[in-house]
């Protein structure tokens, strides 16, 4: 398999292009800008469409348009830009369009800084815009996964006609690691049953999210909820490490999960029976699996660069109030030693 050293943000573009994505609309923002740069460099070489939009709002609405035409569309941004995109994402979810959106999260709130944080969890996982909707959310933790999950996100977005979010952060975006390139390239086929392409076949189609009739809009909402239940049933993904006899389970995703993994090894060397549970999908959240671990008697520590946004989901899933939290803010990665200290405290 041909491999190269590649930056995380570039790996997103690699994944998108092999996944048959042919429209990218973006607006500059650190630490996501390389996705924009790489798209501007590579998309036109193969006739794919790139526009530097006037704002993140315009970018997500261009994405909405190209997605309405049935194309495979990618949008990418970070913190402040993701906030601006929320209206558009709500429309995409409401109109049931497939679209992949990458959040290279940075530290907030407000303008914050360009260091990594995982504080966009709630925004990505709970919907983020107005109305009852869910994004499918995948959380890569390596350059390889930045590519592979982008491909997977396109599959899921089209399988469910739903926005799929890659929730990464500034470290994953900027780090360089080996990337095994995709072995196949998707030749996308437009689905004429719903797309609006400006041709005879799709002339009767309509993409919309408005419905003035209360009963009808309720039925639409119930359909959406049923879809989210199907996603919960079928698409949960997670990874476990040294979990079999673990008394303390670190729950961690994305870049933090790598540090948590080294902390597990270090703890084991000290005789602490630690393990790592890493949600790969944040929506759907691997609730049943965590519940099983709780029933077995494990204790949990959430390791995330936020104020415990994921911890709330762990609490809900496990019924344990007493879930620990190791967190950092402001662009600081969590240190392995900070995790060790917490484990020693509870061990």
């Amino acid at each position: 398999m041909p491999a190269q050293l590649v930056e995380g943000n570039t790996a997103v573009i690699v994944g998108a292009m092999y996944a048959g994505c042919d429209c990218f609309f973006g607006y500059p923002i650190t630490p996501a800008s390389e996705i924009l740069h790489e798209a501007s460099r590579h998309f036109p070489k193969v006739g794919r469409k790139f526009v530097q939009a006037e704002s993140e709002e315009a970018a997500i609405n261009m994405a909405y348009g190209a997605a309405a035409a049935g194309h495979r569309v990618l949008a990418a941004s970070s913190g402040p830009g993701m906030s601006l995109k929320q209206e558009g994402i709500s429309y995409i979810a409401g109109a049931e369009l497939p679209c992949v959106i990458v959040d290279i999260a940075r530290a907030g709130p407000g303008l914050g800084n360009i260091g990594p944080e995982q504080s966009d969890y709630n925004q990505a996982v709970k919907g983020g815009g107005h109305g009852c909707y869910r994004n499918i959310v995948l959380a890569p933790n390596s350059v390889q996964e930045m590519c592979d999950f982008t491909i997977k996100a396109f599959d899921l977005a089209f399988k469910y006609r739903n926005p799929a979010v890659i929730l990464a952060d500034g470290v994953l975006g900027h780090m360089v690691e080996p990337l095994n390139f995709p072995q196949t390239a998707v030749e996308p086929v437009i689905d004429p049953t719903w797309a609006v392409c400006g041709n005879r076949e799709t002339r009767g189609n309509l993409v919309t999210s408005i419905d003035l009739d209360f009963k009808e809009l309720e039925a639409h909402n119930l359909n959406l909820q049923a879809k989210y239940d199907r996603i919960r049933e079928n698409e949960v993904d997670y990874e476990e490490y040294r979990i079999d006899d673990a008394e303390i389970v670190l729950v961690s995703y994305g870049i933090s999960s790598r540090i948590a993994k080294s902390a597990v090894d270090a703890a084991r060397r000290e005789g602490i029976r630690a393990g790592l549970f890493r949600p790969v999908t944040l929506f759907p959240f691997p609730a049943e699996e965590l519940k099983a671990l709780a029933e077995r008697g494990s204790g949990f520590i959430s390791v995330e660069m936020s104020d415990g946004q994921m911890r709330e989901d762990i609490r809900l899933a496990t019924g344990c109030r007493d879930v620990g939290l190791v967190s950092r803010y402001g662009g600081n990665l969590i240190g392995r030693d900070e995790i060790m200290e917490k484990m020693r405290e509870v061990a």
Partner: peptide, 23 residues
């Protein structure tokens, strides 16, 4: 009687841009 896309407030030219570039 043609194809239709309903858009967010003020964003119609951006949505149309997306469709035009795609198709």
């Amino acid at each position: 009687d043609c194809g239709h896309v309903q858009t967010a407030h003020g964003r119609a030219p951006a949505v149309a841009t997306g469709i035009s570039r795609a198709e």
